[in-house]
Design a protein around this nucleic acid. Structure first.
Lengths: 333, 333
DNA sequence: ATAGATGCAAACCCTTTGCACATTA
DNA sequence: TAATGTGCAAAGGGTTTGCATCTAT
């Protein structure tokens, strides 16, 4: 986990000079969670140092945007607000025309669609802005909006929730597969994987609890990360597919399909997100799914080899001898 | 098809006075296809009447936006441009940072996702703005972008393309169903529907050709309306499902499912679009699918009734008599 | 007659810039 | 010392507004 100053150092462009005033502005800016207008930031700065001019604040903001430390958000009406990029996943905005507050969300589904459309139109996208104007739930009810947790935490929370849901349905799948298949190496793999899922689940839930401990209001806050295509549906469908009885090979193949899909899913989106706890959760989870996938693949290859041997031993003698010779040749190659 | 002035009259707010200057500004504005800045519009106006002040242009633009005659698009950097709402479906923008041109598209999938997310966050959306910044294909290739056809025509073109694709796969389905089912009332319905699809298809293709005649560059222009969930996939899958032989009842049920899905699809999105040729295409198509659906449902009910009678005629005499009495009672009610 | 529309110019708002001065490498 | 950053005030640009004057109902 990198600190704010490490983050700034990583982004500081080469060839510039340091200045205490710019440092102060950057530092104050990065302490803020939400969206700041230039004016608001200037006010904050003046509390510490009254001699910093508006122009410097604007220039520093521009500098931060160029360096990738800050994002400039167009709030319409020619008004801009700035938000830190540090520990702040990219996102879209709901903007309430009644209270003028903005609420952040991210939909990977929408992002994916934007990329598809851009590809179809041969447009090279660099940045997308989605603003939904309307009325927030609090203005609809006539109450004042509560304080929002930082988007970074909400993002991590939602990444964990997705991972946990996937893990849960994976556990169901393997438990069921172990129950339904005949005793043998396949069943032992399912039992092992079911056990691993239980263990991973424990770890993820602990991590989730830790996050909530850090920010107790987190659980009640609205969803930040929307993800219809989240991979947990895969295992749920697969569990159905097991039915009331299934042979080892079929169950292995179903598991392979799920783990492959799940791995691809978490890898793809994990890589897309910018550096954050949420990204890490996705990528670590992708790795786990990869390991499961490898285990299943290995087991499936063993199974096929066993079946081939079994088939060979029941064939007529001549065929069996030919087969054995062919196998030997292949092995020596 | 309503004219520009009918459109204005429909939107003109009550209680205002007419003025020749405002009328002129509105008229000139509605003649334009693309996005105009206030300044550009003022220039256009001054060619006709040099005595119209900038303020009036701004005030009239504001008036048009309030009345729903014009849309105000935030092009970033505090710059606004205006686009007519008349014959201009809502849309999102690609904005090329190199040539500063904008390119319009619409993705109903993205719109649907936005609605879903808004509902989940209990946000009442009124308007969404999606801008994708980057580089257009022409700037990437170092050539100047060609002239774009009006979005309205592109929208109609794409709506027709979707309808035609659906019609085509519907035709495949019914042709196949007619071939695979035994001779009888069911087969005759399939033949009839296949014939109707052929006829509708001809009409749609003629309408498409007419559109292209009106604007010959239309065919080569990029996609405007993106629609992953377009209903044509339904019939394609259904045709597969027919396999190499299927009984009448099953085929009817599959057809019912498809027509129901297709009807719901075109109805849902057609209702969502604003007044336009594209909207009309969707809604008319929805109606056709509805009629097909009704035909299939009717036929299915007859089939069930026939089967019930057939089953009854093989039952023991007492049961048959009871059944017949029940049927008579129902009929006399 | 009177509410509403217009022209003009000034005001507005947020942002950028020119220039002299101050800091940093 | 040469390059870069800062303060001040002024300019910028797109937009809105106050007010006297018109004009349609």
């Amino acid at each position: 986990m990198q600190s704010a100053s490490e983050f700034v150092e990583k982004h500081r462009p080469a060839g510039g000079k340091r200045s205490s005033k710019r440092d102060l502005i950057v530092q104050v800016f990065l302490r803020q969670e939400g969206h700041l207008s230039a004016e608001e930031l200037a006010d904050l700065i003046r509390r510490t140092d009254k001699r910093i001019s508006r122009a410097t604040v604007y220039r520093t903001l521009q500098w931060m945007v160029d360096a990738g430390i800050a994002g400039k958000v167009d709030f319409g009406g020619g008004k801009f607000r700035f938000e830190r990029a540090y520990r702040h996943p990219r996102h879209f905005h709901f903007i309430c025309k009644s209270c003028n507050q903005s609420f952040e969300f991210l939909s990977s589904d929408i992002e994916a669609l934007i990329e598809e459309v851009a590809a179809a139109r041969e447009f090279a996208p660099r940045q997308s802005m989605l603003q939904v104007y309307g009325t927030c739930q609090w203005c609809q009810q006539g109450v004042t909006p509560p304080a929002m947790a930082p988007a970074e935490l909400l993002f991590a929370r939602d990444a964990l929730r997705i991972a946990i849901a996937t893990e849960r349905s994976g556990r169901e799948f393997y438990t069921r597969a172990a129950r339904l298949t005949a005793d043998g190496p396949g069943r032992r793999i399912f039992q092992k994987l079911a056990g691993e899922e239980v263990e991973h689940l424990r770890k993820l839930e602990e991590r989730y609890a830790e996050l909530v401990r850090q920010e107790p209001t987190l659980e009640a806050q609205p969803t930040f990360l929307f993800f219809k295509g989240a991979a947990n549906g895969l295992f749920a469908a697969a569990t159905e597919e097991l039915g009331n009885g299934v042979d080892e090979g079929k169950a292995l193949l179903i598991g392979i399909r799920c783990e492959r899909g799940s791995h691809a899913f978490f890898k793809k989106y994990g890589e897309r997100f910018e550096e954050s706890e949420g990204k890490r959760i996705f990528l670590e989870f992708a790795d786990e799914e990869r390991e499961h996938l490898d285990m299943l693949l290995r087991e499936y290859r063993h199974l096929v080899a066993r079946q081939r041997r079994a088939a060979a031993s029941t064939r007529p003698a001549t065929a069996r001898r030919a087969k054995t010779r062919a196998t030997k040749r292949r092995r020596s190659a």
